[in-house]
Design a protein around this nucleic acid. Structure first.
Lengths: 344, 344
DNA sequence: GTGAAAGCGCTAACAC
DNA sequence: GTGTTAGCGCTTTCAC
């Protein structure tokens, strides 16, 4: 069965395709009787105009591409939800591109999104989180950004001047550090994350600064790099526990890592926060799921997504808009951090 | 700056658009020297053919729509990952449609996916999980399925004969029930889920059957409906704990609910599994994150997604393929269930 | 109010 | 091997 088109509708209604198009788009007055006739035929066949053909002319697809490293991480999932929420009444739909953080897959997706002529792109993780980037990787995005609106979430690309919406991750880390210091902790460790990933570096730097400000020493063996997973958090925490001298508090690079750390500590018979305070970062749903509930920093993930779409929308409509949107993170104190005690 | 097209390439290379198209698609031999000339111009301008125009002709977009109720639930996220994995080398990309389980939004998405002429649709949750469905809701999907390949995951639509890939949820519930009985439990409760949702009904029925088989009584106040969230699990468990007579084991409708149940029990000073055994369903990443780790049933979520894409792919290529693909769930015993003890 | 026809960017006969 | 041309399904001037 051939697909039904405006021509079929026009023919059956004894009008021209132009008229059908007019009622479809309400783009010019049509005599009420002919409009009704056309509508009834449209309904009869459940006719829906081919969006491809429309987009070819209108040069807009109503599609937004989202490139993110890991759909399995609730942080990204929350960002997506925020984006989706904002996009609802604006009529956008989403291409979800799960890059796994691999650059070649990011490149592939960039290219696909371009071919499919998405109206805009939201980019998270992977190359936009690199401390020092490869020129080719940057160039790919920069060139695409000249044709298609792109916004980076919690990331950056050198010399690119691409629109960004970011939370001040350093500030979040400062909040956390100060919180622990206020609780009386003087020996604090930093767990997880990779040395070449910008958000990690920023947090770590802020942590160090805050410690210094308070005349507290940061032991270098208490800065342990790893990944961003529960598994990694567990391993790293075990390493920490095995040390002759343990910290009384631990800041983890994200909630996943913190949960892993808690698991390791509990398995080794420690009580949290009595024996050790553990803090996460991101305030994912996971943080209220775990026992004890996690003290963490809210990145306003939902809001990040919302704002990104809002900016994209303005960009698509050729409105001028500030390049940088900064959101303030906030400390969320729950049960996994407590007053420093001798009891270790 | 106007968009660059095959015409621009053709002009600069002193050939016709047909030749450009030929090198683009490798659809006919082209003299090597002209091919090279064309390629160099393509590279020079970073030309990428407009997929919209291509799709208009080829009648295939390489896009698959995924409608699911909650991107925040790791079960769906794992299914998506499986789908994405299978789709990689097949060249599909995904429209992610988060319905929130609301029928009107499902309808909207169905309509959008149709207009955008996706090559196939994967449908999870919402209306395909209803015990008794509304004809309009069914009709929408059925009609679309005549034009576009559709596969349902863990769902069904009456009289529709749409392709489905499902896990045998009843069998999973039986495994779980038997497991608890084998541990010596005789008083078991069922927590969470809604009365009109098919997967829940199936599990519950299987639970009852298995109990009967073992001459065990199912108290009706121990079957408590609710939702599928951590919060709901917590509430329901608290209700159970408040009862004069408590069960020694609890089967939860999904992992979220089980985690909530664990939280409630722990907060009330109970130890798991010493005081009460708690089991989940789905084997989401959450189940290894919680303390104690969750005994649960694996739905093979990743495989569900993989198979769905595989079937879609065959459907798209007009291959004949069985309507029903059944996956066997498997019991995953971890720490949250244990031998029945008097200690309560 | 309505129709004829051009054109969006591409592919695929068909001709040479 | 390569060019001409007719669509794919729609929107949009420009006439009338």
């Amino acid at each position: 069965m051939r697909n039904i088109t405006v021509y079929d509708i026009a023919k059956e209604a004894n009008v021209s395709v132009a008229t059908v198009s007019r009622v479809l788009n309400d783009t010019a007055p049509v005599k009420i009787s002919t409009r009704e006739k056309i509508m009834s035929i449209i309904n009869k066949y459940q006719f829906q105009p081919n969006a491809l053909a429309r987009s070819l002319i209108s040069k807009s697809t109503g599609m937004i591409g989202v490139i993110l490293p890991d759909i399995t991480n609730p942080f990204f999932t929350e960002v997506f939800l925020g984006a989706e929420h904002e996009a609802r009444d604006k009529g956008y739909t989403f291409f979800l591109c799960n890059s796994g953080g691999e650059y070649y897959r990011e490149s592939e997706y960039l290219s696909v999104l371009n071919e499919k002529r998405v109206d805009g792109i939201i980019f998270l993780g992977g190359r936009v989180n690199l401390v020092r980037n490869k020129p080719e990787l940057v160039k790919e995005v920069a060139e695409l950004a000249e044709r298609t609106p792109v916004v980076l979430i919690n990331g950056n690309l050198p010399k690119c001047n691409i629109h960004r919406v970011v939370t001040d991750e350093a500030f979040g880390a400062e909040l956390l550090t100060q919180h622990l210091i206020d609780l009386g902790h003087r020996e604090i460790a930093f767990l997880g994350g990779m040395e070449h990933i910008a958000p990690t570096v920023q947090k770590l730097k802020a942590f160090r600064r805050k410690m210094e400000e308070n005349n507290l020493r940061v032991r270098k063996e208490w800065i342990v790099y790893g990944e961003y997973s529960v598994k990694s958090g567990k391993q790293l925490m075990n390493r920490l526990i095995d040390m002759a001298h343990r910290p009384s508090a631990v800041i983890c690079v994200n909630d996943f890592t913190a949960v892993g750390a808690i698991k390791a500590a509990v398995e080794r018979g420690m009580r949290i926060p009595e024996h050790i305070s553990i803090a996460g970062y991101d305030d994912t749903p996971l943080s209220t799921t775990v026992i004890p509930e996690l003290t963490t920093v809210s990145q306003q993930s939902h809001e990040l997504g919302r704002q990104a779409v809002q900016i994209l929308h303005q960009l698509i409509n050729r409105e001028k808009i500030r390049k940088l949107t900064l959101l303030q993170p906030s400390l969320v104190v729950r049960q996994s951090t407590g007053l420093y005690t001798e009891q270790r």
